[in-house]
Amino acid sequence: MIRHLLSAGDLDAATATLVLDTAQEMASLADREVKKLPTLRGRTVVNLFYEDSTRTRISFEAAAKRLSADVINFSAKGSSVSKGESLKDTALTLQAMGADAVVIRHSASGAPHRLANWIDGTVVNAGDGTHEHPTQALLDAYTMRSRLGRLSGLNVAIVGDVLHSRVARSNVLLLHTLGAKVTLVAPPTLLPVGVDAWPAETSYHLDSVLPDADVVMMLRVQRERMDQAYFPSAREYSRRYGLDGARMRRLPEHAIVMHPGPMNRGMEITPEVADSPRSTIVEQVANGVSVRMAVLYLLLGGKV
């Protein structure tokens, strides 16, 4: 097993499948009376969050606690971060406190890579800037596999602000590794220069992609992007790239609709779609805990 999880690209097909299979076993825990395992008793997991993300933090926290690890939440607010302590000094502090794993969320791309240089423990990337969010990709893959029964050969459309999306980057890498075919759909301004080197197709036209899609993953689009001239207006964006009921009905019958949250209802997705039976948005949240349990077990359990 690998030591850190910094990028979805760190996972080969066998390891990624092991994570998903393990997550499936972890999921059965949800039906049990005692929702706790002794596996990581005596281990310390630090949630080091430089960015507000309550949903990701509580997901990791629940995962670590169900495995009986001790959890320390270290958030940018009201901590030494606001006094300007450097990431390196924070790393040395956590090291001294005996952190076995640090789950880090940071607004700067690559911050988890830097952290991994400075501590002996395991580093899990919980989202770094506009780079990656590997556990999100794992829970998305898990959700697709449990809904559609496979990943290999699936047509997955990822729609929206690919340029700024860590979810898109991690999903492209992981889904490619697991044999799915990814199409990125966005206005040209929201696709990075150099995207042609990614193992994915690109399209500027959502309507032409929908009839063949097994999965449509809608990305959050921030309205402020409008001010930087990425698109003319929110209304034009949702007309061209938003998923509404009419577009949803053009999908194959078995196709599912995903969203990493938090949603901009009315912008990239309409309430009709978000609340439809095709939507996996609530499942994704539940699957997040199982997948993160699997990741923590395999990374921490694997440490000699």
């Binding site: 791309s109 800037g129 506009t130 990656e132 860590r166 990075p192 220069v193 080197a197």
Partner: peptide, 18 residues
């Protein structure tokens, strides 16, 4: 901008310097 705008910046998720 953080680094040269191109394939590597796209992969690393860093704002490009074209």
């Amino acid at each position: 901008a953080q680094m040269h705008e191109g394939e590597v910046a796209a992969r690393l998720g860093m704002t490009g310097w074209p």
